[in-house]
Amino acid sequence: MPSQKNQALPNSETKALKIRKKGSLTQDWVGNLFSFPALFVMVAMVVYPLIYGIVISFYNTNLINRFEFVGLRYYGRLLTDMTFYKSILLTVWFTVVTVAGRAVLALLFSSILVKDNMPCKKLFRSILVLPWFFPDVVIGIVWKWLFNTNYGLFNFILQSLHIIDQPIEWLSNPSTAMWAVIVASIWKGFPFMMVMLMAALQTVPKDLYEAAELDGCNSFKQFQHVTFPGIMPVFSTTMMLEIMWCFKHFTMIWNLTKGGPVDATRVVSIDIYKTGFEYMRFGESSTRAVIVFVIIIAFTLLQKFLQRKKD
């Protein structure tokens, strides 16, 4: 068929097409060559570690001199490992509450900060994004001190105000440790969402608010029918990112509790780290990581599917 088409074309056009094709082929080749460095970096930094991680999940290995093929043994063992299921549930709990907390704070502060009549807007904006600038390790240490039973600021304030007689063991008590970690994580992470939502809020046309006001919408209705649909694309993407980050979050939890007490904060990332780097069972650790990878991929696909369906 293509040859028939070419035959139908005048000679000059056929020649031009050939030249264009030849040119584009050469240009593609050169273009591909230029993309090789980026491709090389991506393969070396992303694809190779990913495949290597999957491969070693089938091995009993110390990564140096022992590579014993065990097939699906670790996957089978994981199926009956209740501690792994518990750590997955804990991770889901941590993720849901942390992301929800960040979303509420981010919505609240971004709504306030985009108001035209807000005084010292730049100052507040700068202060509120500060937690995002500090490394997780620093934030972890600061919050560990704040929560410390014996000389922490929170207990000092509560005792000074005679609200409590005995210090609260925030990080030593399994029922408060996870909440302490969640509070610190919300505080650390909400500025990113806030900045994204502020940008989104500024794109919502003002005349829509005027129209809504004329239609008799109060502030809540305006938020429900104008603001939220307006920021929805950014909001959902940010939520997706936050969920993925929180699901594999490690640093803050490790710095505050190292997964304790009594495994109360042993989320899946802590479980993977301990299995690999404390027990030196890299194969089993990779098995856990592969499962988490699959969960995150499944979640991403689901989100994309729902988004497409909605569009």
Partner: peptide
């Protein structure tokens, strides 16, 4: 033993001893 024992590792206990607690 002082409260917060489950969060007090080696360094925290050394600090408590240095602080005469």
């Amino acid at each position: 033993a002082p409260p917060g024992a489950l969060e007090n590792s080696f360094n925290e206990n050394v600090n408590l001893m240095a602080a005469e607690q």
